[in-house]
Simulated scan of single mutants.
Amino acid sequence: MCGVSPVEAASGKTRRRRLNGGSDRQANSALYTIVIARLRWDTRTRSYADRRVTEGRTRREAIRCLKRYVAREIYQALLA
């Protein structure tokens, strides 16, 4: 629902994933804001992003992974 599900996007030699475009853009923006705030203040989030970058991913891809993680956390909080 928030547009953080990965969609394959390949062009020539480059294979990558992008975010699903058919979703709630406001929710996606809210997730981005949460992730950026966490990257600034939360050490666990910073270490996760650093680990992803050392694995060979870009910072943008690490943020996308974090957005999926935050979406799962928020969903579980809403169910409780």
Rank of each mutant, 00 (worst) to 15 (best):
C2Q: 05
T43P: 06
R72N: 10
R46E: 03
A62H: 06
N20M: 06
E8V: 14
V7N: 03
T14M: 07
V4N: 00
V35Q: 01
S29Y: 09
T33H: 12
A71R: 10
R46M: 08
V4D: 02
L66V: 08
E61R: 14
A37Q: 13
R38M: 12
S5R: 13
E55Q: 10
Q76P: 00
A77C: 07
I63G: 01
A62F: 09
D42P: 03
I34T: 13
Y69G: 00
I63W: 00
S23L: 00
Q76W: 04
G12W: 04
S5K: 11
S11L: 03
R59W: 10
R40W: 00
M1S: 13
T33P: 00
Y32T: 15
T43R: 11
E73Y: 05
V35C: 15
M1C: 09
I36K: 15
S23D: 06
Q76F: 06
R40D: 07
I63R: 06
R59K: 15
R15F: 07
W41T: 13
A80I: 05
Y48E: 05
Y48I: 14
Y75S: 12
E8T: 14
L31V: 11
G56M: 01
I36P: 01
V7Y: 03
R17Q: 10
D50Y: 04
Y69Q: 07
E8P: 03
G12F: 07
A77M: 11
N20W: 03
E73T: 11
L19G: 01
R60W: 02
S29H: 10
W41Q: 09
G22D: 07
R40I: 01
R40K: 15
E8N: 11
T58V: 02
G56T: 03
R64G: 05
V70G: 03
A71C: 13
I63L: 13
N28T: 08
E73A: 12
A71G: 02
R68P: 06
T14D: 08
Y32L: 15
R52S: 07
L31R: 06
R17P: 01
S29E: 09
A37D: 11
A30W: 04
T58R: 02
A49I: 15
T43M: 05
G56P: 01
I34E: 09
R64N: 12
N28C: 12
A62N: 06
A9E: 08
R25N: 04
I36T: 14
E55S: 04
R51P: 01
V35F: 02
A49L: 08
L79R: 13
I34L: 15
I34Y: 10
V70E: 15
